[in-house]
Design a protein around this nucleic acid. Structure first.
Lengths: 251, 251
DNA sequence: CGCAGTTTTGATTCATCTCAATTTGTGTGG
DNA sequence: CCACACAAATTGAGATGAATCAAAACTGCG
């Protein structure tokens, strides 16, 4: 299986302990995108050791001092903030090649927890060094800015989802989004495993867990997908896409 | 009135046509924050001419090529995206000293419209030049990153508002947010004028216009504020703050 | 003064939440 | 390996908050 190959590869590169972007199969998705060979070798010197995290452990917590941003090497993460009334609220899920921790730049304090949803590895990128290096390498600077901007756009898309879509549509949009991201990583866009619980999905989508469950059931009944616990199979992607274009009012 | 002073000041500095951050009374809120005198003078060379926009006019539109970010010198803006089904959706309001347009960095194409809510002036900051200059001035680079990060944090806060707060609470949070921002600019935090329509507020808050109207009426009936059309007076800020800490379920 | 657009208010409908019960899954220790 | 307890997910019935539909009041502008 794909998973196994991935694991073998990790074991292999991890033997060197030191992360090396230049050797990483995620470099087309991650920070190094668009860098030349020579530039990449500079980046190699900056990226700290990789860091293993067991499922459930955190990379940083709310209130921690900000010192670095992180790239997912393998595994799956969630980030969650604390609401005014003390509840956790998932603000994002991160998979291989995705970067998180940028929330901490502005105040130099993290304002979310970053928690591994499965045994994972991250690459640590000390932010001060990253800034210093990006003063040397224009294409690195530019790409860093693009990554931050992409996060802004992503969050704004999420705002739109939350304010305009109905429960079922939110779930469909969520699954389509995962599908695309898996596809970009060479995994099947139609069949995948959810790493997060229904609880976490509902928190992320601004719904109650029962509503998410009902949405899954309803999409299944409409033959748009198959659900077996956390295993998802999208049966009718065009129809799911069409759902997203549906106005909020009852169609 | 305060407004008049502001206007006089504009007329005055505008006589020079060229914007000068070093002379700007917003420099503690805006891009130049934390720069030395010498660094400021470099920034002065980069900031393009100021740009006047009449109420209703746009600075950029969805699909426009991205070339610069903008700082509000005077006036008020909204940014709005297009939903899948073709409706406009307000994603933010920008006031003096706030920076917008960073959504365009990632794809080099803007994905929102930026529209003046009143006759306004913006300072145009060509992004390529800004990047080049930030390679010379570490504190400028750092602050640019903080500004982008702040936008990320802001958007995530909005996601939380949209997924956890009830209609009335959203409106209260919106007003409290405006209040703080006015206060930071030396205006009254308890009494201010809304530049945006109920329609725009409702779009921003993910509600219908009638619901926003009812929320205003209800907050008024509870003696938490006075509403006279677009003129708002916050009567009980502690109570409004307390509202925000209220769990989503019926109190 | 009258007209168009905006805002407020009211009555009803509908989607999601809440509460409750059941089923399914997971991990632990005998 | 199975039994048990506990957590996660599903399903159902009813309550509730916001949307919708409709109409009235207000605002601003020529």
């Amino acid at each position: 299986m794909r998973e196994n190959n991935e694991n073998l590869e990790i074991t292999f590169t991890n033997a060197g302990l030191q992360a090396a972007c230049s050797q990483c199969n995620l470099r087309e998705l991650c920070l190094p995108l668009g860098l030349s060979e020579g530039e990449l070798s500079h980046v190699d010197t900056l990226i700290g050791k990789r860091h293993k995290v067991a499922r459930g452990e955190s990379i940083f917590r709310i209130g921690d001092h900000f010192g670095a941003i992180y790239a997912v090497k393998t595994g799956f993460f969630k980030t969650e903030m604390l609401t005014e009334d003390g509840h956790h609220q998932v603000t994002g899920f991160q998979m291989a090649g995705e970067i998180f921790g940028m929330d901490g730049i502005s105040t130099e304090v993290h304002n979310c927890d970053a928690i591994a949803l499965e045994d994972s590895e991250v690459c640590l990128m000390p932010f001060g060094e990253l800034e210093a290096l990006s003063m040397q390498i224009p294409s690195l600077q530019r790409h860093l800015h693009k990554i931050m901007s992409r996060e802004i756009v992503r969050d704004q898309g999420m705002m739109m989802l939350l304010s305009t879509m109905r429960a079922e549509t939110r779930v469909a949009a969520f699954l389509m989004n995962l599908s695309q991201r898996f596809a970009a990583r060479g995994y099947s866009p139609v069949e995948f495993h959810l790493r997060m619980s229904r609880e976490e999905i509902s928190s992320y989508l601004g719904l109650k867990i029962e509503t998410v469950s009902r949405a899954f059931s309803h999409l299944r009944d409409a033959s748009l997908l198959e659900v077996d616990k956390k295993h998802i199979r999208l049966l009718d992607i065009p129809a799911l896409k069409a759902l997203l274009n549906t106005p909020a009012c009852h169609s």
